[in-house]
Nucleic acid binder design. Structure first.
Lengths: 222, 222
DNA sequence: ACCTGAACACCGTTCAAGT
DNA sequence: ACCTGAACACCGTTCAAGT
């Protein structure tokens, strides 16, 4: 009798491959997720994945589509377009953080799939409603997406490095103040005199500052 | 008789290793430069490199130091701090372009060497002269450096991809308009109606726009 | 059509052994 | 102290062969 509903090896599919990729990205970080590690978890050989995914880069694009689909872009409110953009940026970073390791998958990959383009459409709809010209909107969208992904990717890198040294993320930063403390005040008068400003502020504040820079800059053109 | 001045294998040194790395980064792109390829060009085994360089990541940091040392940061002119920062950003991007493949080396690497910190000191000196507070300066410097490196790295990625397909860089973009052309205007009303704005503007204009965004944003806080 | 084992052509890094 | 050959434990991708 065929055990239909409890088959130990359901068929491979793009969805299952991306599922496993997302899990492993979270648990191991970008560099430790390989075609082989994914295949192993799926109980198959690495060659089998290539029947569903062309190559590693396409897998990255699929992961980008998956996390893009999680974004919820609000209906444009012309009165509060700037706040809507700021909120969206914060949502994007939070989404990357909820799915560690995925930021790297988006870098260098243009959004070309339907999934990935839906939030882009939403972003531009908000900008247009706010009265931002198409040219400015296009370039602004580029800069914002690049900034958010870069910040998320850097955070992933610190996480991976801490994991490599097998130390908690906080104490990985411990030796950084040493660099500034050991600087020659003659040669580095500014750096040595702004020590605490270099260190202060959490990731949240830094990111909010950067997003505010971009949005204020855009407003100052209008 | 010992042929002193024409020794075919001068001693290995960090400098020579970084020299070769920079050359190969230019000619092959980041991913194709390996400990092995560097060792091969130096006529030695890959293991020999490890007597001078701890690992690949340290090599990247050394490359970052090398290109940082090429930057010329002007004496602060309080009247024109904003233009000085814009010029510096343009110089940074030009420097990355003159040394293709090096942008990736800087990503995720904090400037900790003396070489790498000299231009950072110069940047902060300009900002301080311009009256920017230390906290703002610190966060702004972060965002600017991240933005410039990201843009340069993306350009390197397009270049590598074009190289992989063995096609010139221009025609690698040929199929991109197709993506927008095939979009459903019902689902993507904004994207389909801003076609030319998405494409227009060279890399130069886009970058100048992004830098202007950051600087204008910073000014609007003062 | 989908899956597999085995191979190809690579990686970074380590280490015992040489000079 | 510096260098080397050889190995270890990996990569992405391909391909002939199976079902």
């Amino acid at each position: 009798m065929p055990a239909r509903s409890t088959d130990r090896k359901p068929r491979l599919s793009v969805e299952r491959i991306v599922d496993v990729a997302m899990d492993q990205l979270r648990e191991r970080g970008y560099d430790a997720v390989t075609m082989r590690s994914i295949a192993a978890e799926l109980g198959t050989g690495q060659a089998s994945l290539y029947a569903h995914v062309a190559n590693r880069n396409e897998l990255d694009a699929l992961v980008m589509g998956r996390i893009s689909a999680m974004l919820v872009v609000p209906e444009p409110d012309p009165e509060h377009w700037d706040q809507q953009i700021a909120d969206l940026a914060i949502q994007m970073l939070a989404n990357f953080r909820n799915h560690p390791g995925t930021a790297r998958c988006t870098m260098g990959n243009m959004p070309t799939s339907r999934e990935a383009l839906v939030p882009v459409e939403g972003l531009f709809a908000i900008l247009r409603a706010g009265g931002v010209g198409d040219q400015d909107a296009s370039w602004f969208g580029d800069a914002l997406a690049l900034y958010v992904a870069s910040v998320a990717w850097e955070e992933d890198i610190w996480k991976s490095r801490a994991r490599a040294v097998n130390v908690d993320e906080e104490s990985a930063w411990d030796h950084i103040p040493d660099v500034f403390g050991s600087l020659d005040p003659q040669e580095f008068p500014v750096l040595t005199s702004m020590g605490e400003a270099m260190m202060s502020g959490g990731a949240e504040e830094r990111f909010a500052f950067g997003v505010n820079l971009l949005i204020s800059g855009l407003k100052s053109r209008m």
